[in-house]
Every structure is written in C-alpha cells, then in structure tokens.
C-alpha cells in the first residue's frame, strides 16, 4: 500500500493532465481564441522571463566551457572545446536547465494565478456570465506559454553559446574564432533540430502542467500553495523524463534516417 497509493495518485495526475490537454486541443479546434489575449500572454511571459532565461543560458554555456576545459586540457585537446561544449549544451543540458528555470518562473506564476481564480470562484463566476474559461483563460495562456517558452529556450541556447565563447576566451586562452570554428564539426543540423524539438516538447509539457494544476486547484489558500508545489514537482520530474524520451526518440530517428540515406 505504501507504494501503490502514491503510484495510483501519480497515474491519476498523468491521466488527468492528458485529458486536460485533450480538452485544450478540443477548445482550440472548436472556438476562436482571442489573438490579443494570446499576444498579451506572450508579451507578459517573455518580458518577465527574458533576463532569467538569457542569464541562465549564458551561465549554462559558461559552465560547460569550464568543465570541458578541465577535461580536455589533460589530453591536450583544447582545440575541440568549442565543438564539444556547444554540442553538449545545445543537444542536452541547455534545453533542460533553461526549462527548469522557466518552469520555476512561468509554471509557478500561471498555476498560482489560475489556482487563485479557481478558489475565489472567479472561474465559476466567469461560467455564470456566459464565458467559457477554457477559451477565455486557459487556451490563451497555453498558447502564450508554448510560443514564448519555445523562443525563450531558443534565446537561452544562443546565450549559452555566447557564455561558452566568453569563458573559453577567459579560462582556456582560446580566441572566439578558434572556439566557433570547431562548432560545425560537432554540432550538425540534426543536433540543432534535436535541441529545438526538445524545446518544443518542454514548452508543451510546461504549458499543460501549469494550466492543468492551476485550473483544478481546490482547498483555498493552502490549496494554491499545494498547487504551486505540485506544479514545480511535476514539471521538474516531467522534464527529466521527457528529456530522456526525446533523446531516445531523436537517436532512433537519426539512426533510421542514416539507414535510409546510406
């Protein structure tokens, strides 16, 4: 029972989240979503998270440069620092760490905002006043988060390359051109696509979890606190699992593509 009860609760949460995603997709197909509301969400999310994402991206790249510098220096292979650290950042660590930052900021904010609207009966009042909250509240936030999170993650990746270049210059005595010239050797088109695919999957996960958790909040102020905590936990664990799955999927797709083209 110690294991079964939490397992059922997790499965219940995953099932509820997937059904909620289905409901959002049905809403997007059935109703017209106010373009201004989506743009407002994109603007708010982007402006609120621009600095966090850019700075975390910068330091992820810087961190990778420092780490690879220590390892490669032992083998006298500093010339490939740019390619290796950028490859690791773009394909793997960059999207994941920047998504963690975004989940803390965008996820917590959105779930708390919807949660408070739920417990103070604003969502019920909206229904009574002839408005579909899925159309008016959830869908614009869902689309706004996906679009802005995708571009913020992309911005974070660009900043991570900048952070890598600057730190490589400072700690490994490499010139920016020496760093950048080796990037194409290790970062191929599919690496970039894989990174962008991850960014998109992470954005959808983040948007779904925070809107679902916020919309289904119960239990007053304490309930909102629990919602924010549950959102943080679900997005962090979900991001790691999704990272593993997308890496695996990207690997399978790449192998298939290579088998077809060779």
């Amino acid at each position: 029972m110690v294991i079964i009860t939490p397992a059922i609760r997790i499965l219940d949460g995953v099932g509820g989240g997937l059904m909620f995603l289905g409901e959002i997709i049905r809403t997007l197909r059935k109703y017209k979503i106010d373009r201004e509301a989506i743009l407002t969400q994109i603007y708010n999310i982007s402006m609120a998270s621009f600095f966090t994402t850019a700075s975390s991206g910068f330091f992820v790249g810087a961190l990778m440069s420092v780490q690879f510098n220590m390892q490669l220096r032992q083998f006298g292979a500093l010339s490939v620092l740019g390619g290796l650290s950028t490859s690791a950042t773009v394909r793997e660590l960059g999207p994941l760490l920047i998504a963690f930052m975004l989940s803390g900021k965008v996820g917590a904010y959105t779930s708390a905002e919807l949660g408070i609207m739920r417990v103070t009966e604003q969502i019920d009042a909206m229904r009574c006043l002839g408005t579909n909250p899925m159309q008016y509240l959830v869908a614009p936030r869902f689309l706004g988060i996906i679009i802005s999170a995708f571009f913020l993650l992309f911005l974070g990746l660009l900043m991570s390359i900048l952070g890598g270049v600057i730190l490589a210059t400072l700690v490994a005595d490499l010139s920016p051109s020496e760093f950048i010239n080796t990037i194409p050797m290790y970062v191929e088109g599919h690496s970039v696509l894989s990174g962008l695919f991850k960014c998109l999957c992470f954005s959808v996960l983040l948007a779904t979890v925070c809107t679902y958790k916020g919309y289904t909040t119960t239990g007053g102020a304490k309930g909102v606190g629990k919602t924010v905590l549950a959102t943080a936990l679900a997005t962090m664990v979900g991001l790691v699992l999704l990272d593993w799955f997308t890496t695996y999927l990207a690997g399978v797709l790449l192998d298939t593509w290579r088998a077809i083209t060779i």
Binding site: T120, E121, Q122, D124, A125, M126, C128, L129, G130
Partner: peptide, 26 residues
C-alpha cells in the same frame, strides 16, 4: 445562466479588470 444569475460567497470579481469592466463583462 442568462436567466439565472448567481452571486457567489466570495465577491469573485476579476482582479485584473476595473469595477466598470467587471459589471460590463456579462
């Protein structure tokens, strides 16, 4: 719901809208 209006236990006003916009919402 156009025929049956409900006044909730909480005022349930939309925080981001002014009083005017709240009344005009429905």
């Amino acid at each position: 719901r156009k025929m049956c209006g409900m006044v909730f236990q909480h005022p349930a006003l939309f925080d981001s809208l002014t009083v005017y916009e709240n009344v005009a919402f429905g």
